[in-house]
């Protein structure tokens, strides 16, 4: 099992390197998608089928969105001289990350031996207290439902702001032209 994790992780690292360094934007997006599917396989083998399902599906949709954002433009890579300033800045931030990681790893439990103080209580109580057999469902919609409500509102806000950004013209301009084109914009104003 451990060897499998390492192989998958290596696959994801290679995929990420390809996604970042390749010149063609379409292959870059698809390599990022490969990393996402690797993550979902990893979730599956780590004993988390719930999020494995979610990750696969979300990956499909995010690939569609990214390809949509990429392909309409001219797809040539931006030809460039090496920009040394931003590279150095990036490396400095990675240095910060490594420092933080070394500091944080000292307090972690070893891989395969989680702490599980609250979780043990959740696991033994889920079926009786919430009636749900799936402990993850029991946690997100009963023990920690308030948290889920907050997450739903975050999703709502992000969708709303995307609409605000994407809207090209005001309502009056839309009334003036191309209302008939999709037939939905009139309905929106009712």
């Amino acid at each position: 099992m451990n060897a499998l994790f390492h192989v998958l992780m290596l696959f994801m690292l290679i995929g990420a390197a390809v996604a970042i360094e390749t010149k063609n934007m379409l292959s870059s997006v698809i390599a990022a998608g490969a990393v996402g599917f690797g993550v979902s396989l990893m979730f599956l083998f780590l004993g988390a089928p719930d999020i494995a399902i979610t990750q696969v599906i979300v990956e499909v949709l995010s690939l569609i969105i990214l390809i949509r954002a990429t392909t309409f433009a001219d797809n040539r890579a931006i030809e460039r001289k090496m920009d040394s300033f931003s590279t150095v800045t990036g490396l400095i931030f990675i240095g910060f990350l490594v420092m933080a990681a070394v500091w944080a790893f000292q307090d972690l439990t070893p891989f395969g031996e989680p702490l599980m103080r609250v979780s043990r209580r959740y696991l033994s109580g889920t079926a009786v207290e919430t009636g749900a057999v799936n402990a993850v469902s029991g946690i997100i919609l009963d023990y920690r439902a308030y948290d889920t409500l907050g997450e739903a509102i975050v999703l709502f806000t992000s969708i709303l702001s995307a609409f605000v950004i994407l809207r090209r013209r005001g309502k009056k301009d839309i009334e003036a032209e191309d209302t008939e084109e999709f037939g939905i914009l009139e309905q929106e104003q009712l």
Partner: peptide, 13 residues
């Protein structure tokens, strides 16, 4: 969603 893996988020997507 409350019996097998899955739930509102995955099914909604």
């Amino acid at each position: 969603g409350h019996i097998t893996p899955g739930g509102g988020f995955a099914g909604g997507v």
